[in-house]
């Protein structure tokens, strides 16, 4: 059985977000780059299923995310070298499908949503490109004898899906703990030859007009104190607000 896991190079948005001058992308020069947590979990699941290839569509620097996945146990990597900003979710899905067809995987894992564009759809579009079933937003995935069992939280409790391969599954964080790369893992990752390819067709684009930042909200916070010493002031406030009786 062969698994493909799809990761995307995204700007680390845990700090302050800055846009590029043309307003078309988030500027990662200061914040650095990463992959989404959902994808880290997808990589972990992929590695556990056995033979896992990692792929990305992105510029030459996206090789960093491929190496990160190789370092934790993926055994091969494919890089569709392209300007990510010009590719909408349907374009990306088409390119991933081309990789799947050429390489013959039976399970494709993706994140539920990318942490930058948050389109919530590449996995589903990929499934339609391939004519495969897709399970979305699950946290646990196991494969046994050609059958995928996937579990995740639904509105009415934990839901289980069971379906035969081939299949597309999109993953949410929370079900598995992504492993850390070991030093030998990193060394091995450096030696893997990455299969580079070009996109198969012209992208239609994401329909983006521009990105905008929210205006900063002026702060009028009143700091009651630092640490445990603030407790009396806090309880005074509770009394003043009438949420606690004397």
């Amino acid at each position: 059985m062969s698994t493909l896991v799809c990761v995307k190079r995204v700007v680390d948005s845990s700090g302050q977000v800055v846009l590029t001058e043309d307003g078309q992308a988030v500027d990662g020069r200061y914040a650095g780059f990463t992959m989404s947590v959902h994808e880290e979990c997808a990589v972990e699941i992929a590695v556990r299923t056995g033979d896992a290839t990692v792929m990305t569509l992105g510029d030459t620097d996206a090789v960093e995310q491929l190496r990160a996945a190789l370092a934790v146990g993926c055994t091969a990597a494919t890089h569709v070298v392209a300007d990510q900003q010009a590719f909408g979710p349907a374009d990306v899905a088409r390119e991933i499908a081309a990789v799947v067809r050429d390489q013959g995987h039976d399970l494709v894992l993706l994140g539920n949503d990318a942490s930058d564009t948050g389109d919530f759809q590449v996995g589903i579009r990929l499934a339609y490109e391939l004519g495969w079933p897709v399970v979305n937003g699950v946290t646990e995935v196991s494969v046994d004898d050609g059958v995928v069992t996937a579990r995740g939280a639904g509105p009415g409790g934990v839901e289980t899906y069971r379906l035969p391969l081939p299949a597309v599954v999109t993953v949410l964080e929370g079900g598995v703990e992504p492993r850390y790369p070991t030093v030998p893992g990193r060394m091995r990752a450096k030696k893997v030859a990455i299969d580079e390819r070009e996109p198969t067709s012209q992208p239609q684009g994401p329909g983006r007009v521009r990105l905008l930042l929210r205006p900063p909200v002026p702060s009028s916070v009143q700091v009651l104190g630092k640490g445990a010493e603030a407790a009396p002031a806090v309880v005074d406030l509770f009394e003043q607000l009438g949420v606690i009786s004397r």
Binding site: S13, V26, D116, R210, L211, L212, L213, R214
Partner: peptide, 15 residues
């Protein structure tokens, strides 16, 4: 206009 980048930015998108 929709939320992107975990809500830190907005995207104007044409459909």
């Amino acid at each position: 206009t929709r939320q992107v980048v975990g809500g830190s930015a907005l995207e104007e998108m044409r459909l």
